[in-house]
Simulated assay, not measured.
Amino acid sequence: MKFLLTTTTATSLLAATMGAAMDQEAPVNAVVTIGMIGDVVKNVGGDCVDVTAIMGPGVDPHLFEATASDVRTMQGADVIFYSGYSLEGQLGDVLERFGRQKPTVAVAPASVDPGDLITTQDVYGIDPHIWMDAQLWSQIAPTIEETLAEIRPDCADRIGANAEAYQQELLALHDWAAASIGSIPEAQRTLVTAHDAFAYYGRAYGIEVAAIQGISTESEASVADIRATADAVVEAGVPALFVETTINPRTVQSVIDAVRAQGHEVEIGGELFSDAMDEDGTPASTYIGMIFENTAKITQALGGEVADVPDALSGWADEWNAAEIIDR
């Protein structure tokens, strides 16, 4: 409710912000919490926006605490976009305070139908990892479009065209991921990861998901968690487990050791991007690349075949050499 109220307060501040922004030819200064939002803002805003992400590659948003420098960055923003649903839980008070000063938009609650959300039995209530479903994540584009266009009405037509084109790319990405994961033999279609960030991915693309830890990463997995996951891997005959870029890999290695102690061979299928994207200048520094790389690794490690890249993604594929990603 606090996030929703912040968004509502931010909307009421748009008119005040518009005047100042329109007097400047400089791009809108948009500050975002996570890179997955930042890449959507870049694609929708184009040259009408400059984007700064508070949390960079390898940063776990569940544990993130803002520094004085981060607060100064947000103070200088024309607009702040954050995910919501407690993903940035430790930033909640900071975001609420900025929501009384400038447009501060929780993109997930503002964009995604509540009926499409995955509920949880923990303190989160709602699983915040919505970007793991490209179709759902595409729904934040109109929210970002509307916000930026109200701040910079002179850019509204360009922003609208960008948003529509980018949404079509994400829908094509969604279909491609479903086709790739669907090629994995059904008996091997189980994704085992360090923490529970892939529930939306599993639901969207038809793969069972087993996580060693829950949604939060504040506490480490217990011996019982490791033993239970190892038993599930052996029972299902899963050939590969996956580590995550924001999580210490030792928990996954503990499961592998427990699995091998039962006489079942399993390997690490690769490193997945869950709560953060990759370093700038790499394919997975883009949201499309993040989902593309994850899907290629999962598909190949579990015995499937990566689908052909659709025409709608040809621009991204040419820029980032998608064929090389698949061949790694």
Rank of each mutant, 00 (worst) to 15 (best):
D278V: 07
D225T: 05
E65T: 09
A199N: 14
T295D: 03
G289D: 05
L5H: 10
H129N: 14
G281F: 13
V51S: 03
E65V: 11
Y124K: 04
V123W: 03
M74G: 01
F273Y: 15
S86F: 00
K102V: 12
E65A: 13
Y166R: 03
L91T: 04
D327E: 15
M22K: 12
M18K: 14
D39Q: 06
R250V: 08
V31S: 01
A221D: 11
R328E: 15
G182M: 09
A240K: 01
L171R: 13
A307N: 08
F81Y: 04
D133T: 11
I144Q: 01
T104P: 11
E146I: 02
M18C: 12
D175V: 06
D318A: 15
E271Q: 14
Y205S: 10
T52V: 14
H195N: 06
A15V: 09
A172E: 06
W131T: 07
N162G: 10
S83H: 12
S180F: 01
V123D: 15
G281Q: 10
A194L: 03
P57C: 09
T6L: 08
R227K: 14
A276W: 04
A16L: 09
M36C: 10
G263C: 12
E279N: 11
F242P: 01
D116Q: 15
E305G: 00
P57V: 09
T120R: 11
D157Q: 15
I325L: 15
I184E: 02
W137N: 00
G84N: 04
H174T: 05
Y287W: 07
I181P: 05
D278H: 07
W316H: 13
A108T: 04
Q168P: 04
N29L: 02
